[in-house]
Nucleic acid binder design. Structure first.
Length: 459
RNA sequence: GGCGCGGUGGCAGAGUGGUGAUGCAGCGGACUGCAAAUCCGUAUAUCCGGGUUCGAUUCCCGGCCGUGCCUCCA
């Protein structure tokens, strides 16, 4: 079954065909690095990581570009508040972002361009837009002239009139048209800035993505991804800039947007106190449980992120790793592929919930199997399925034993108690054996008596 | 006000014009010295009202409810 994706441009699920056979260019809007990534930021990263893994499986040459926005007024504000240079804010935050996303098993993109390294490309693009009559200088700013682009609003399906009618913000006096947006703005001396034909200044929000996409993927590429909230104005404006700077060549052929996330049924916001950073959550549950939670709903559906969902994802992974733990002594079959139905589910517009149900089926088969060759085959298939989804990468025993919580009982002490319980059982002193079981249970350690002896795991 | 999305069992969450996946929780059973894990079995759902159809949860219209965006905010 061929890959199909829901294209925001046409509001339809379309069969995916790369522009150049065998070769795929993917651009995803990355973070503005001024603070830790929150769980809402993590959703597109994880969703497009699955797409990247799938594309890599289907096509020999995939180039995944995800930018880092390291110049922005929010960053500048943060730097001023902290009394530190913008560069130290962005370096620190980008590093934290990398750590957090790695903890979610998100692969790094092939190229991670930074806005500040592409100022020259932005300036050149703006110059082209001015020369072509699509942009103008006014009051130290350079603005994109929206009326110069007849197709403006196609992605978000808004007419210019609607935009103006719905505008909530006062229109800057230097704009020729209320819908015009900033390409370049002046920087006062205390604000970071770069020399340009229009004086010292800094780029507007949208131009960086146009310039970086052009630099690393060319004028027209295959897939552009991001959150639903970016459709307007960000992606609409990106299209306007790029298309006009490229003589009408389309920017991306498929626009893929992930849905929004709520927390415990409410919009995440700092004032509601339900604002979770990935970093906070990683202190409570393994990153893999966060990842599975994010993949538990279809990417275009709204996702309600709850403690209960997180707990359930952890329980699911416990079961999956439990099945792997039972076949630790069986070498996985080599060169195994994920099940066809799982690949098919992902090819159908990234139906991760359906794909996950196929993992459940695999785990169930593995638990039931008693024949060594079959178990080896199933183990290989399960690991291949996990690889495609970015799951089940850890050692199963290590997973089940978890990390000794601060003050928790350590592995050596547990083993010692298990030995003492074994002696008690040998002497039919079940009261003592049960006392030890209870003692460990009270510390979150569960004992499992199997044919090969007693093993343990943390609850 | 404009544009958009969604309403499926106790919870989460897919598919589908014709016996409604999957997981968690529940109940019963097997296994276990007791457990845990696992396995087997089992009850429970398509917001409301119209329309199209032999037949709609699925398509169309209306309503109700929830929710997102509406230009520097990612």
């Amino acid at each position: 079954m061929p890959l199909s994706l829901f294209n925001t441009l046409t509001r339809q699920k379309e069969r995916f065909e790369p522009l150049v056979p065998g070769k795929v260019g993917l651009y995803v809007c990355g973070p503005t690095v001024y603070d830790y990534a929150h769980i809402g930021n993590a959703r597109p990263v994880v969703v497009f990581d699955v797409l990247y893994r799938l594309l890599t499986r289907l096509y020999p040459d995939v180039r995944y570009v995800r930018n880092i926005t390291d110049v922005d007024d929010k960053i500048i504000d943060r730097a001023r508040e902290n009394g530190e240079p913008m560069e130290s804010v962005t370096a620190r935050t980008a590093e934290a972002f990398h750590q957090d996303m790695a903890a979610l098993n998100a692969l790094p993109p092939d190229i991670e361009p930074r806005a500040t390294a592409h100022i020259a490309q932005m300036v050149r693009m703006i110059e082209r837009l001015v020369a072509a009559g699509n942009a103008y200088e006014a009051d130290g700013h350079v603005l994109f002239a929206v009326p110069s682009m007849p197709d403006y609003g196609r992605l978000s399906r808004r007419s210019r009139d609607e935009l103006i009618a719905g505008a909530r913000v006062e229109v800057a006096p230097y704009k020729r048209d209320p819908a015009d947006f900033v390409l370049w703005k002046p920087s006062p001396p205390e604000v970071p800035g770069w020399a340009s034909p229009w004086g010292r200044g800094r780029p507007g929000w949208h131009i960086e993505c146009s310039a970086m996409a052009e630099t690393h993927l060319g004028e027209t590429f295959d897939i552009h991804g991001g959150g639903l909230d970016l459709i307007f104005p960000h992606h609409e404006n990106e299209i306007a800039q790029s298309v006009c700077a490229h003589g009408g060549a389309p920017l991306a052929r498929y626009w893929v947007h992930n849905g929004f996330l709520t927390v415990e049924g409410e919009k995440m916001s700092k004032s509601l106190g339900n604002f979770f950073t990935v970093r906070d959550l990683l202190g409570e549950v393994p990153g893999e449980a966060i990842r599975l939670t994010l993949l538990g709903a279809h990417y275009r559906q709204p996702l309600d992120f709850t403690r209960d969902a997180l707990r359930q994802s952890k329980a699911t992974l416990d079961r999956w790793y439990g099945a792997l733990r039972a076949v630790e002594d069986v070498p996985a079959a080599k060169d195994t592929a994920p099940p066809d139905e799982l690949v098919t589910a992902l090819e159908d517009d990234l139906n991760t919930p359906l794909a996950i149900s196929h993992v459940h089926a695999l785990v169930s088969s593995l638990n039931k199997s008693t024949e060594t060759a079959e178990r080896a085959a199933l183990k290989g298939t399960l690991l291949a399925a996990g690889d495609l989804l970015g799951l089940l990468r850890r050692d199963p025993t290590e997973w089940s034993r978890g990390d000794a919580a601060a003050g928790g009982i350590d592995a050596a002490a547990i083993e010692d108690l298990i030995q003492r319980r074994k002696d008690a059982r040998k002497g039919k002193d079940f009261a003592e054996a049960d006392r030890i079981r209870k003692e460990l249970a009270d510390q979150g350690v569960i004992l499992e008596d199997g044919p090969g002896g007693t093993t343990w795991k943390r609850a």
